[in-house]
Write a protein that binds this DNA or RNA. Structure first.
Lengths: 234, 234
DNA sequence: CTTACTTAGTGTATGATATACACTAAGTAA
DNA sequence: TTACTTAGTGTATATCATACACTAAGTAAG
């Protein structure tokens, strides 16, 4: 039964397979998500996660990266598989299974791009999302929870900041994502104890007060840190 | 481009979509996985994860549960989505994307079943796996790492034990999965501090030494524990 | 019935880590 | 020169993790 089924299943009807991306960016104390406005039915005019069909000759990761670039101009960013959503009725047009990804982008690199290249793309605060097409609100919820969990045990927060950042910026990022305040001295103590950020001989520019020192995430130090059996934890 | 593509993509060729299950069980100090012997090409005679095609009218979770029951007789068990594997060349017959799940079963309930109902199914020690079909070894590796990680922060270990168990059995389970020894007193201290297991008025039977007290995982206490803001941690 | 054997069951002291908390330093702007 | 804003720093205390060893209870064999 099971084996014969397997043999002939290639002629069975197949669900359509898509990828969708929850793209996060951090902008001055706010966490944002990139959405595109739908140009057709169903959900014409509604906002949706960028995404599209998986081609026969590309991996899932490749498909997600391609769709993201085609629809929003965003490329070469942190992109990780989130979960696969396959409820039978999630798309009114028929059976569509979607492999969802989440991406973290440095907004400085894409602020212009998203608004020029794709006039139907826009950044929304995660606390002020419009009504979303399909089950995209649910996908977003899963992505946001994953981000909150993962930022505490993997150094992915750096993906949302410029290469050079101040410790206060990093702390604000954590406070924004985790939605709670963090003690300044304890935060810095824990971060510096890991020895995975490099202190630069530079300070921030154009601020109307004492300028803060800039730091850079040091990926090779992080790998060494992991090898020694420690784990990232903030 | 992107939108028009979406509109017409339903006529594009579609990857086949399957589910595969990594089924774990714990048997007297050994962690085991349930495999089935393939009855056709490719990989005829090789061992593989149980799985099969997703039907058009069933959710992914449903498909995984159905395939598991059809191929191995295992049903109503802990079953959770693991990851979706979609490398272009992972199946020599063509493009097949698989949504992998992992399951945790109480072996006592299925020991007979798997060997009678499906003569091509067998339990293997995770440390002595045969060569697996397709990319199933890789899928297994991902599943095992997930299990190791998740057992420390979610109370899923209980899914692998009988409803009534001794604290030593639970400790051995953790030692087996995490592949390291754990201090007896500290383990019990941490576990009991969470107040999520119920001490029963029963002891184990038919042992040639002092009988250990039996306990039961108390799911409602666990939920209360979570609501109070604590987190499972062993 | 006594002894040997096996596993159950328990507490404490020490070190490590997390937390709570407040002032001085440096720069800009008026 | 003064007011304002943010940067940058240390310590004391509480909490938690770890290391560690003996007595209790039952079975089995002589």
């Amino acid at each position: 039964m099971k084996n014969s089924e397997k043999q002939y299943s290639y002629e069975y009807p197949r669900p359509a397979l898509t990828v969708d991306c929850v793209v996060f960016a951090y902008d001055e104390g706010e966490l944002r998500v990139l959405l595109i406005k739908r140009g057709e039915e169903p959900f014409l005019g509604a906002w949706a996660l960028p995404g599209g069909f998986v081609h026969m000759d590309e991996d899932l990761d490749t498909a997600a990266a391609r769709e993201l670039e085609e629809e929003t101009g965003v490329k070469k960013v942190f992109l990780e598989q989130l979960y696969t959503f396959g409820a039978v009725d999630r798309d009114p047009r028929g059976r569509v299974v979607t492999v969802a990804y989440y991406a973290l982008v440095k907004l400085t690199n894409y602020k212009l791009h998203a608004s020029t290249d794709a006039s139907d793309a826009a950044w929304f605060s995660v606390h002020d999302l419009p009504s979303l097409a399909f089950d995209h609100q649910y996908i977003f919820d899963v992505a946001f929870k994953r981000l909150q969990a993962k930022i505490t045990y993997e150094p992915i927060g750096f993906e949302l900041l410029p290469n050079k950042f101040t410790l206060t910026q990093l702390q604000r990022l954590y406070e924004t994502i985790l939605e709670r305040e963090i003690d300044k001295r304890n935060f810095r103590k824990r971060l510096l104890a890991m020895d995975i950020v490099e202190e630069l001989d530079e300070v921030e520019q154009d601020v109307a007060h004492r300028a803060a020192r800039l730091y850079r995430f040091d990926r090779s130090s992080y790998k060494r840190y992991l090898k020694e059996g420690f784990e990232f934890n903030l």
